[in-house]
């Protein structure tokens, strides 16, 4: 993708981890309003196809920038860093230990609805750790310390994944 056509510029936003969410949403909706296939519902197939492609791109771009993790990964890709390739050796032993401890805490939550309160507390704890890592990510990215940026990104990936697992566990306990 041409640098001038990245997802940030698509929504007239600066290329940074911190995004102005109301502006992102407003710009997304305005652009969708202009390009959605519904706007050419009575038109010919070529116009419809072009609209589907444009509208899909906007949906994809919006979903990427809306999610902090996807946004971080996208920033790394824009910086030319391969986010897929990760090995355990990229991670600090202290981080691996932290991950193990967090996993144990999740596994130790009592079964049924009794586990909801400890899980909520864990979510808060993980939320706080995510905030710290996101700040570290921004700092490393700005300093162009790419290996550090990538390492923090993988730590974030783990924390978000654990967060999702806790939510799934909560949903199971709630009978959803």
């Amino acid at each position: 993708m041409h640098p001038a056509e990245d997802f940030f510029s698509l929504f007239s936003l600066p290329r940074s981890f911190a995004v102005d969410k109301p502006a992102l949403t407003a710009n997304f909706r305005a652009l969708q309003a202009a390009s959605h296939p519904d706007k050419v519902a009575a038109g010919d197939e070529a116009a419809k196809l072009a609209a589907v492609q444009r509208s899909s791109l906007l949906n994809d771009a919006f979903a990427t920038l809306k999610s902090p993790l996807a946004r971080a990964g996208y920033l790394l890709r824009l910086a030319g860093i391969d986010v897929e390739a990760v090995s355990q050796s990229d991670l600090d032993p202290a981080v691996l230990f932290e991950q193990m401890q967090l996993r144990e805490s999740v596994a130790e939550a009592p079964a049924g609805e009794d586990g909801l309160a400890p899980l909520a507390a864990l979510k808060q704890e993980i939320g706080a750790r995510i905030e710290v890592r996101e700040a570290a990510f921004v700092a490393a990215l700005e300093a162009e310390e790419f290996s550090a940026t990538k390492r923090v990104f993988h730590e974030l990936q783990f924390l978000y994944k654990l967060f999702q697992e806790i939510e799934a566990s909560e949903e199971q306990r709630l009978g959803y």
Binding site: R29, Q32, A33, H36, D38, K39, A41, A42
Partner: peptide, 15 residues
């Protein structure tokens, strides 16, 4: 009514 073009474009969009 919107899709057939009886209303102006900016009125309404469904995602």
């Amino acid at each position: 009514d919107v899709l057939i073009g009886n209303k102006s474009d900016s009125d309404f969009l469904l995602l």
